[in-house]
Amino acid sequence: MITTENLTKIYTDGAPVRALEDVTLEIAAGEFVAITGPSGSGKSTLLNLIGTLDRPTSGRVVVDGVDVGTLRGNALADFRRERIGFVFQMFHLVPTLTALENVMLPLVPYRRGLKFRLEDRARELLEAVGLGDRLHHLPGQLSGGEQQRVAIARALINTPKVILADEPTGNLDSRAGAEIVALLRQLNRERGVTVLVATHNEVVAQAADRTLRLRDGRVV
C-alpha cells in the first residue's frame, strides 16, 4: 500500500537539517504500523511526505500504486481527498463548525458527484466513533478525546485507503488515548484501512502489528 524509496528530506529554511535520510520501507494494505523514535527523529516529516503535505528532497513515495511525486496542484488535492485521511495531534477541527459539519467538511465542495448523502454519511460515522449524541456540538464543547474522535470520523468520510495519524494521543490523557487507539485498531480491523501512527506512546506501539523505529532520520 505504501512504499518509500531512498526518501530524503533536508529542510533548508535556515541552517540545513537532514530530517530524513534514505528511508526505504514498505507497508502492506491493511497493516497497522506504529512509527516511534525520539523527538526530532523525523516521524512527522515521514508522515507529511507520505501524506503529500510536503515534498521530499529526493527519493520516491508510492501510495496505493500512485507515485505521488508526479502529482501537482489539483491532482494532488484530489489524491489526498480520495485516498488519505489525516488525524492530527492538535485535532484541527474548525472551531466555528459543529461536529457534524466538521466531518462533512472534506467533501463539501465536491458533494455533487457523491453516491450517498453527505450528511447521512457523516452522521453514521459519528455514531460509529461513539458520538451519535454530539452531532451539533462545537469543538469547544467537546472533550479532547471526543474532538479526536470527530477528527477520526472526518478522516473516514472519504473512505480512505490510508489513515495517517501524527501523535493522535499526544494531547490526551492516558485513558482517552487508549480509547482512541482502540478505535483506530477497530477501524483498521473492520474496514481494512491501512493505519500509520507516529507516536511516543508505548501503548500505541504495542497495539500495532509492527513498529518502525527512527533515529536521526533513519530507520533502525
Binding site: L53, G73, R80, R81, F86, V94, P106, R154
Partner: peptide, 20 residues
C-alpha cells in the same frame, strides 16, 4: 491560515478554497 491548511490537507482544491 491554520484552518485553510487543514482544508488543503483534507484535499480541497485551490479553487474551492478561493471560492470560500
Amino acid at each position: 491560515r491554520r484552518d485553510i491548511g487543514v482544508l488543503k490537507a483534507l484535499g480541497w482544491r485551490t479553487v474551492a478554497v478561493a471560492r470560500l
